[in-house]
């Protein structure tokens, strides 16, 4: 049949055209195109890989940061605790010292008062004695000529007087 008989002309030209296409396209198109696609695929793969790497590094860094934060927080807590303790100690100590000091001051004051009191008493006694003597002298001047006897009598009386 006519349709099934290959024509020589078309066979020849097809062969020529197709062979030229094969060689021209291989050189002008497929080689650069396939190479460009391959290069791009490689670079994309590379970029993805490095992104993945960066991400893992990042997460590592982040976990490091979290750890450091935790440590810092613990350190802070510890320092705070210590400080509180120290503060309390200092306060306690100060209180105690203050109390001691107060007590001491009070004691000293008491001693001084007692001493002053004793001195004052002694002074009063002597003054009272001399006053009484003067009074008695004046009172008894008329009564007692003998001074010695009078004084011994006053002393005797003073002894019986309790303050």
């Amino acid at each position: 049949m006519e349709l099934l008989t290959p024509a020589l002309g078309l066979f020849f030209w097809t062969l020529v055209v197709f062979l030229i296409i094969i060689f021209m396209l291989k050189k002008l198109a497929w080689k650069p195109i396939l190479k460009a696609i391959k290069d791009r695929e490689d670079s994309i793969e590379e970029a993805l890989k490095s992104a993945e790497k960066a991400r893992s590094e990042m997460s590592q860094l982040q976990s490091g940061i979290a750890e450091a934060k935790k440590e810092a927080a613990a350190e802070r807590d510890r320092i705070m605790k210590e400080a509180t303790e120290m503060k309390n100690n200092i306060l306690d100590q100060a209180k105690k010292d203050a109390q001691n000091e107060a007590r001491r001051i009070v004691d000293d004051a008491r001693d001084a008062i007692l001493k002053e009191k004793a001195a004052a008493m002694a002074d009063i006694q002597s003054q009272v004695a001399s006053l009484s003597l003067e009074i008695a002298e004046k009172v008894l001047a008329k009564k007692f000529e003998n001074k010695g006897e009078q004084e011994a009598l006053v002393q005797e009386y003073l002894k019986t007087v309790s303050l």
Partner: peptide, 28 residues
């Protein structure tokens, strides 16, 4: 007779040749 004419089919194929060449060299 050896008929190597540029027939309708050959001409059409040459058009396709030009199209393909322009297409893919421009893509390249």
């Amino acid at each position: 007779v050896m008929d190597l004419s540029i027939t309708k089919n050959v001409a059409s194929m040459l058009v396709s040749f030009i199209i393909i060449l322009l297409l893919f060299t421009s893509v390249a």
